[in-house]
Deep mutational scan, measured.
Amino acid sequence: NQASVVANQLIPINTALTLVMMRSEVVTPVGIPAKDIPRLVSMQVNRAVPLGTTLMPDMVKGYA
């Protein structure tokens, strides 16, 4: 199973992502692939993302 990107903490709306905010985990449904973590750094979330939430492409500005 492919690992997805999961929030390692509460990420407030419009926050630029950093490595410490994200972890990889095998979850259902599948979200953004963990291999894309380096690409996500500095991108902003367009909503508040609670701890443990799988990041989906529509949550990150400029990803999709």
Rank of each mutant, 00 (worst) to 15 (best):
N1W: 05
N1H: 14
N1V: 15
N1Y: 08
N1A: 15
Q2D: 15
Q2L: 13
Q2W: 12
Q2A: 11
Q2S: 15
Q2R: 03
A3L: 12
A3D: 15
A3P: 14
S4K: 01
S4R: 02
S4P: 00
S4G: 06
S4T: 04
S4C: 04
V5C: 08
V5D: 01
V5Q: 01
V5S: 03
V6W: 02
V6E: 02
V6C: 09
V6H: 01
A7D: 00
A7C: 06
A7M: 07
A7P: 01
A7S: 07
N8Y: 04
N8W: 05
N8F: 07
N8G: 12
N8V: 13
Q9D: 08
Q9V: 11
Q9I: 09
Q9K: 09
Q9R: 05
L10G: 10
L10E: 13
L10W: 06
L10C: 13
I11R: 00
I11Q: 01
I11Y: 01
I11E: 00
I11V: 08
P12N: 10
P12R: 09
P12E: 15
P12V: 05
P12L: 07
I13R: 07
I13H: 09
I13Y: 07
I13V: 14
I13A: 06
I13N: 10
I13L: 08
N14C: 13
N14R: 05
N14Y: 06
N14F: 08
N14A: 06
N14M: 08
N14S: 05
N14H: 09
T15A: 08
T15W: 04
T15M: 08
T15L: 06
T15C: 05
T15I: 08
T15R: 05
T15S: 07
T15P: 02
T15E: 07
T15F: 11
A16K: 06
A16Q: 10
A16F: 07
A16H: 06
A16T: 09
A16L: 10
L17K: 00
L17G: 02
L17C: 02
L17V: 04
L17W: 00
L17F: 02
L17P: 02
T18W: 03
T18G: 05
T18C: 05
T18L: 05
L19F: 05
L19N: 10
L19M: 08
L19G: 12
V20T: 12
V20D: 10
V20N: 13
V20M: 10
M21Y: 05
M21P: 02
M21N: 08
M22H: 00
M22C: 04
M22F: 08
M22W: 01
M22T: 02
R23S: 09
R23K: 13
R23W: 03
R23F: 04
S24T: 09
S24H: 15
E25F: 03
E25Y: 05
E25L: 04
V26F: 09
V26G: 06
V26K: 03
V27M: 04
V27W: 03
V27Q: 09
V27T: 11
V27R: 07
T28G: 07
T28P: 02
P29H: 13
P29V: 10
P29W: 04
P29F: 06
V30A: 11
V30W: 06
V30T: 12
V30C: 08
V30R: 03
G31R: 00
G31P: 00
G31Y: 01
G31I: 02
G31T: 01
I32A: 02
I32C: 08
I32Y: 01
I32H: 00
I32S: 01
I32M: 03
I32P: 01
I32V: 06
I32Q: 00
P33G: 05
P33V: 08
P33M: 12
P33C: 15
P33K: 05
A34N: 06
A34I: 08
A34D: 15
A34Y: 07
A34Q: 04
K35E: 15
K35L: 15
K35Q: 15
K35C: 15
K35F: 15
K35R: 07
K35T: 15
D36L: 03
D36K: 03
I37F: 03
I37W: 03
I37V: 12
P38S: 13
P38W: 06
P38E: 13
P38Y: 08
R39K: 14
R39M: 14
L40W: 02
L40G: 00
L40C: 10
L40D: 00
L40M: 08
L40V: 06
V41M: 08
V41D: 04
S42M: 06
S42Q: 10
M43L: 12
M43G: 04
M43T: 05
M43D: 04
M43Y: 05
M43Q: 07
Q44K: 13
Q44I: 09
Q44V: 11
Q44D: 04
Q44Y: 09
V45G: 01
V45F: 00
V45E: 01
V45L: 07
V45N: 03
V45Y: 00
N46P: 03
N46C: 14
N46R: 10
N46D: 14
N46G: 12
N46S: 14
N46W: 07
R47V: 11
R47M: 12
R47N: 12
R47H: 15
R47A: 14
R47G: 12
R47Q: 12
A48G: 06
A48Q: 14
A48W: 05
A48F: 09
A48E: 10
A48P: 08
V49F: 02
V49K: 00
V49N: 01
P50V: 15
P50I: 11
P50D: 15
P50H: 13
L51T: 14
L51H: 12
L51F: 07
G52R: 05
T53W: 12
T53I: 12
T53V: 10
T53S: 13
T54I: 12
T54C: 05
T54S: 04
T54P: 08
T54F: 02
T54V: 10
M56R: 07
M56G: 04
M56S: 11
M56C: 15
P57H: 09
P57V: 07
P57D: 10
P57G: 11
D58R: 04
D58C: 14
D58F: 06
D58L: 09
M59N: 06
M59F: 13
M59S: 07
M59C: 14
M59I: 07
V60R: 00
V60T: 01
V60M: 04
V60H: 01
V60F: 05
K61C: 15
K61F: 08
K61T: 13
K61I: 14
K61D: 12
K61V: 11
G62Q: 08
G62P: 05
G62K: 10
G62I: 04
G62D: 13
G62H: 11
G62S: 13
Y63T: 04
Y63E: 07
Y63K: 03
Y63Q: 04
Y63W: 12
A64F: 04
A64P: 09
A64S: 14
A64D: 13
A64W: 04
A64C: 15
A64E: 14
